[in-house]
């Protein structure tokens, strides 16, 4: 590895790393206290609920971490909106586009041996965008249905009664989907994907190396190098 390859660059700000920790803890606790409620007649669910002191106590813990998750989600929404309004150029790296669909297909073709080169990714690849937008979708759906289930009397003053059992179905199945997606997709991206085994620490340390950026996000790397070269040239001209 070259000396330049070992150069450390900042990938995630401290606030983003704190957001990830809050999301990680709240999501884990919501799964741990929520899924046993869905399968409350199973022996394993009783064992987990017993750790919290019983079903009632597990529900209280569930509601606490739901508040943490909703607060985190609202903070994230405010930050994103503010950045889109105030920061130039607009930070749109996480927005999905046609290019991501093309990258996905190209990636599958590469893995099947139908292409000789991997697709070249920008700051976030299509796999990371799938996960980010899944979390956005899941958080919105789970928050709305969770609040309806938590305040059924109040909710049915404004909404049709059938939305209560409908919320129960959506909340319950969406939880299973989220849990399975995290266990498969997130563990794969963050722990087992090529170049990150045993895990990608950048979301905790905030740092990555130029070598890793060049390997995993070549377009971002090239933009960074071009920007750096332009700055140096500007400095030399002066």
């Amino acid at each position: 590895m070259s000396k330049q390859g070992n150069t450390v660059v900042l990938r995630f700000a401290a606030s983003q790393r704190i957001e990830h920790i809050l999301l990680m803890v709240s999501f884990s606790m919501l799964c741990l206290t929520g899924l046993p409620q869905r399968y409350s007649s199973a022996g394993w669910a009783h064992a987990i609920l017993g750790v919290f002191g019983g079903l009632q106590q597990a529900r209280t813990v569930h509601h606490f971490f739901a508040v943490v998750l909703i607060a985190e989600a609202l903070y994230h929404a405010v930050v994103v909106v503010c950045e889109l309004i105030l920061v130039r150029p607009r930070p749109t790296a996480m927005l999905p586009g046609v290019r991501d669909a093309r990258d996905g297909l190209a990636s599958v073709a590469f893995l099947l041996g139908l292409r000789t080169e991997k697709p070249r990714y920008d700051r976030y690849d299509f796999r990371q965008k799938v996960e980010y937008w899944s979390v956005i979708w899941g958080t919105v759906v789970m928050s709305i249905t969770g609040l309806i289930l938590l305040f059924p009397v109040y909710a049915t003053r404004f909404l049709p009664g059938v939305l209560l059992p409908a919320s129960k179905i959506v909340h319950s199945y969406e939880a299973v989907l989220a849990f399975l997606a995290i266990v498969t997709w997130h563990l794969y991206i963050a722990h087992f994907a090529e170049g990150v085994l045993p895990f990608d620490s950048s979301i905790f340390t905030g740092k990555t190396t130029l070598e890793r950026m060049k390997e995993q996000h070549p377009l971002e790397y090239e933009q960074l190098v071009a920007k750096s070269t332009a700055t140096e040239a500007g400095g030399a001209d002066r």
Partner: peptide, 28 residues
């Protein structure tokens, strides 16, 4: 509206509640 939630018994078959049936089917 609360009394129409039919939460005393949770049924998702096609005849009892088409909406709940479709929702569950979509997820399954």
């Amino acid at each position: 509206a609360f009394a129409t939630t039919a939460d005393g018994h949770f049924r998702t078959d096609r005849m009892a509640s088409p909406l709940l049936y479709v929702l569950e089917l979509v997820y399954r």
